[in-house]
Amino acid sequence: MDTETLAAYNKQAAAYARDWREQDAPSDMYALLKQYFAPGLTADIGCGGGRDTAWLAANGFQAIGVDVSQGLLDEARAAYPGLTFQQGSLPALDGLQRGAYQNVLCETVIMHLEPASISEAVSALISLLLPGGTLYLSWRVTEQASLRDKSGRLYSAFERQLVTMPASGLCDLLFEEDVISASSGKRTQRLIFRKRTA
């Protein structure tokens, strides 16, 4: 994770967590998760304040939230004390068992990585999946050049191929869209992969 981005999330964790809880629910994303995810162990990578981990748990998934920011994890644990949250960082995702998850959700996280780390991060996400498991991966689209917002968070500009190349030969692409998010109002690219069984 980009160090300035992590510092911004740790410094303003309470404000970010509150903003995410108060946003309109990402009903369009949730509809896709209901359609493509199967029951089983589910990792929410980049869980932030825990909103989506909580939705997963409420909808029958055995969910665990993972985030690099200790501040955001503290907020998630306070808001959802019955759920499991642990620290983990893309691209390595150390501490998470490979081949153990039926579903992996990574919602608007990878754009906070430098472009050179994105393919490695996608490979790590895929490695978490069981054969036949499903990865929902999205990112906020930044056109032309990478930039930082006023808090210092990195929004990388990168080609879609950095995401699709690591999945080639390992996964089938089930769904793709370029959409304005119902929750954030930002342009978002969404891909759903299913890991091949053989």
Rank of each mutant, 00 (worst) to 15 (best):
Q97C: 06
P115Y: 05
A31E: 07
D19M: 07
L56H: 13
A15Y: 02
L147D: 11
T5P: 00
T42F: 06
S127N: 14
G132Y: 07
D149R: 09
G133P: 09
K34Q: 15
Y136W: 08
R140S: 09
A43D: 02
N59G: 03
S151N: 14
R77C: 08
D24A: 10
A157Y: 09
D2T: 01
M111W: 05
C171I: 05
G82A: 15
Y16G: 08
S181M: 12
V141G: 07
G82H: 13
W55N: 01
I64V: 15
T42K: 07
S156P: 07
P131I: 08
A92N: 07
E159H: 15
W55M: 00
Q144W: 05
S117E: 15
Y16V: 07
S69Y: 11
Q86D: 00
V163G: 01
K34E: 13
Q102S: 15
Q86S: 06
G71Q: 07
L90N: 00
R148C: 12
R140Q: 11
S123W: 08
Q97I: 01
A54I: 06
N59K: 11
Q102V: 10
G48D: 00
D28S: 15
C171D: 03
Y101L: 04
A43H: 13
L154T: 06
Q161I: 15
S151E: 14
G49P: 09
S156Q: 10
V68A: 10
F37G: 02
D52S: 10
R153D: 00
D44W: 00
L154Q: 07
E107Y: 11
A15D: 14
L32M: 09
Y155L: 09
G48K: 06
G185K: 10
Q87C: 13
M1E: 08
Q161D: 12
E22M: 06
T53Q: 00
Y36C: 02
A13G: 01
D67A: 01
E177P: 11
D94I: 01
M1W: 01
A100V: 01
S156T: 11
W20Y: 14
S156E: 08
T5E: 06
K150H: 14
Q189H: 14
Q102M: 04
A57N: 10
E107L: 11
Q35L: 09
A38K: 14
V66N: 00
M111V: 10
F158C: 10
A17C: 06
T42I: 02
A92W: 02
R51Q: 13
L56N: 11
I180A: 04
E75K: 14
Y16R: 04
A92T: 15
F158V: 12
V104A: 04
R160Y: 01
R18C: 03
P39S: 09
Q87D: 02
R148L: 12
I64P: 05
D94P: 02
W55P: 08
Q12F: 14
G50K: 09
L162E: 04
K11D: 08
A43C: 12
V68D: 00
S138V: 12
G82Q: 09
S27M: 07
R18F: 04
V179E: 10
Y36W: 15
Y9I: 09
A167G: 13
L33R: 07
D172L: 11
E114I: 04
F37E: 04
